[in-house]
Design a binder for these strands. Structure first.
Lengths: 124, 124, 124, 124
DNA sequence: GTGGTCTAGACCACT
DNA sequence: GTGGTCTAGACCACC
């Protein structure tokens, strides 16, 4: 059994940015903060911030213009795909956890609908 | 940014045992391994193992007999309640994650049903 | 014959703190000494002191803020409930002891009132 | 803070015998088991059993005839006094505990009467 | 500084 | 053998 399950900071920051893109808080082509600002905002090391952008660029979610900065991709298909990847991840994790404790499909759906309803009400 | 996602070992072990109880791999009244054996099996310290059983007892999931060992509760209502707690936890985490990326209720249900179906097929 | 009447240190310390809360010497929201200080004051191991606070938190009598310390609960209902629990414990122990030596209800009440009176006078 | 509050075995056994005398389960003049039998019954050391009788004799509750055994005192006044001592002990401990947590006389009496009632019912 | 967690090893009572 | 308790000392994240 291992104790150190900590998720690396750079992955956490990547998720935050991807979430902002996927929900539209960041639009295609939007400029992202400089690596240095990103480091300040999240209280992380500038090297870590740079790594965040490097990985985001590698997966096609962002692109970089030397001397200008880093931007959200303008490829809306890529963004839709990203949305789908994230949804799939969440759903597949959920399904494996819920089946692990022996819930039937009907119980799961019913419980889920109750939950969504109460959340929706809480927002109003 | 928080860097404290590590889940304590004793909680991880508690979850494993609770899962085994909830799925019936451990029946009401079953004897659990001695604290020392639990420590060996999971490669943890006997003290940590003792803590696992102490917490499980405090939450009414197990009970203890000095000199005899630790056993799964015989209160089946408590086990049903445990099942419900675990399901609620999983579902609520799922809902908050899925809403965070802006999925509607319909999209979620549809994606979910597809996933469950493919999992069910995989089992057959 | 049992030779195990020893009350664990951590329970003794818990009682002292609970008594101070119930009598108002510790008010809701008051900060308790740090686990390390508690250990020094009572001449116990820091780990034992930590256990005291862990148990007090688990029973809802205290709450804990990482890096800040441990505090008396602000839920006055919980404190009233604690008072009641302690009173019930004392009374039930008393009743079983007094019935064990074959005292009638009237004898008990009469003896008790005499005693309370003399105590009250002693206080004035 | 000290951990070892264990009550010595010989005192525990003394209490048991005194209780039996005071409730009439042992009548004045009754023969008590031999020290050796007492040791067997309670699972204690014969020396400890001997000490029990030594102390009971010293306080006038029992008397010993060489070669015959140990007997309950025939002095009924001593037995009544013993009863009173035990009642006083229990009551005084109770009063100090109950005042320590700030209970008024009325609360105490009321709680007590409820308790005695429910105990009496339980016996019927 | 605070609490949270873990390891290592000891002694005890009870079965 | 079992669990229950305690000590001693370590490292970590958080404020």
């Amino acid at each position: 059994m291992k104790y150190d399950n900590a998720i690396p900071i750079y992955l956490q920051v990547i998720r935050v940015i991807e979430r902002d893109i996927v929900t539209g808080r960041l639009a295609p082509g939007d400029k992202l903060p400089s690596a240095r600002d990103l480091a300040l905002v999240h209280g992380i090391n500038p090297n870590t911030a740079a790594r965040v952008y490097r990985e985001l660029e590698q997966s096609g979610v962002c692109f970089t213009r030397r001397g200008l900065g880093t931007f959200v991709t303008e490829d809306e298909g890529r963004i839709r795909a990203l949305h789908e990847e994230m949804a799939d991840d969440i759903v597949s994790r959920f399904v494996s956890e819920i089946m692990e404790i022996g819930m039937t499909r009907e119980e799961t759906i019913s419980l889920l609908e109750k939950r969504i309803e109460s959340c929706s009400k809480a927002e109003n």
